[in-house]
Amino acid sequence: MSEPLYELRQVEKAYHGRSVLHIDELAVYPGEILALVGPSGVGKSTLLRLLNFLEPPTKGTIMFRGQVFNGQQEVPLAERRRVTTVFQRPFLLNRSVKANVAYGLHLRGNRDSREQVADVLARVGLQDQAQQRARTLSGGEAQRVALARAMILQPDVLLLDEPTANLDPYNVGMIEEIVRQMNATQAMTMVLVTHNIFQAKRLAHRVALLLNGRVVETAPTDTFFNQPGDPRTAAFVRGDMVY
């Protein structure tokens, strides 16, 4: 395997002195889709915030593209802008659909984004809604706008935090297909947080199980589901885990 894109060592995150995440070691490789699974409240979303550099770790180091960051130093804007997240809720701005999609490019000083916006809107099937106000969209449409808004940035890493929870099967299928395509055609690295093990199975190359803020097991998808190394993974995959 190639050099990892991310490498976390002894990373700990605590809020008000209470540790919610403790990762001894975790690597993310370029071009892969890594799924983080586990019951809710085990620190999956916290981990994504660390990977997006939205918050610094309390302890430990995060290596990203060969540079090592601990909680002390500011991550350079240029590095931070290589990563973006699509959250469970779309969080659209109270503007038009196309303004929402163009937002990230505008932040980067790119004013002439009309063609790119039209292009990504077509890819998520919303070319006709470009002029519409974002708040008039349905839940599925809004999440597709959120995805388009991230896609247009061509990030090195796309973080997906339960992107299809609460969506209907049509929208789930559509979003999964777009994600798979982006990964296949652009070799975009993705970290997917999901509590849906079937989604992890459908999309991911590797899967990691988190329990109580710790990584229990990381394995290629096939191994993870068919020959889990840890009894807790086996229980989780069988659906026996009580949570």
Binding site: R49, L54, L77, T84
Partner: peptide, 13 residues
């Protein structure tokens, strides 16, 4: 406040 997190995640200074 989560909108601010989203804004930051999209690369805002």
């Amino acid at each position: 406040p989560q909108l601010q997190q989203q804004i930051k995640s999209l690369g805002a200074t």
